[in-house]
Simulated scan of single mutants.
Amino acid sequence: MKQIVLMRHGKSSWDYEVSDKDRPLKERGIHDAHLVAEKLSSKGFSIDFAYSSPANRALHTSMIFLRGIGFDLTRFQVTNALYDFSGDSVAAFIESLPDTLDTVMIFGHNYAFTTLANTWGDTYIENLPTAGLVQIEFDVNGWSKISKGRTKQIVFPKHLRNK
């Protein structure tokens, strides 16, 4: 059994003249990453390893979330393969993960994540919002064998606000 958890970076700011990779999170993006972490932490959420795109907004989201769930950051890595918007590079990266890992979390970008959530999951998502998370389970023992799986959980920050 393999599980992939896709989390889109939090809401980013366009207020600064910086490259796309250097765009920071807005205050709402920071808040939403905390909200989603709190929700999953309360459910006993557990992952084997986490990876992030090197983009500032994805990396910052990953640090907020992973610290929020008390994750051991020695099991975390940044990889350029996740700075992808189509999903092709992300899919190839996931399909090449070591089979010793069963549950992996990836922090990255749209449209890649919406596309992969709909390709692999069994619940249609029109758009994975910023700081949105989807967990998909596959009944296989190797990452190279993943195809259609089961959407195990979807968490959108807007459903957690003011609750």
Rank of each mutant, 00 (worst) to 15 (best):
F138G: 03
H31P: 01
K39D: 11
A50G: 08
G44D: 03
F113Q: 05
D139V: 07
A131L: 10
A50K: 01
S46K: 15
A33T: 10
T61M: 06
E17G: 01
T100H: 12
Q77H: 14
M1R: 09
T103A: 10
L59E: 13
P129N: 10
T123H: 12
V134W: 03
T123C: 07
S96Q: 12
H9Y: 12
N141H: 10
E137W: 05
K11Y: 06
F76V: 02
L97M: 13
K148Q: 13
H31R: 14
N110E: 13
D15N: 15
S13N: 05
V134C: 07
F45L: 08
G29K: 04
F85G: 03
A55S: 15
L128G: 04
I94T: 04
S89N: 13
Y51S: 02
I4V: 15
L97N: 02
A91N: 04
D72T: 13
G70A: 11
K43A: 08
R75V: 03
D122C: 09
R57C: 08
Q3M: 08
H31F: 11
S13Y: 08
N118V: 03
V134K: 02
G108C: 03
L73H: 09
F85P: 00
N162H: 11
K21I: 15
L73R: 05
D99E: 05
D84M: 11
E95T: 13
I64D: 06
K2N: 06
D32E: 15
M63L: 15
E95C: 09
S41M: 06
I146V: 09
D102G: 14
N162C: 02
R75M: 04
H60T: 15
S41A: 13
N127P: 01
E27N: 11
E126A: 12
I154T: 09
I64Y: 11
S96G: 12
V104T: 07
R67I: 00
V90R: 00
D72H: 12
A33D: 03
T61N: 13
I136E: 00
A37S: 15
G132F: 04
Y111N: 14
Y111S: 12
R75K: 15
K39A: 14
K43C: 04
S12K: 11
D139S: 14
V104Y: 04
G149A: 06
R150G: 00
N56V: 14
E38Y: 05
F93S: 09
V18G: 05
G29I: 11
D122M: 04
G10S: 15
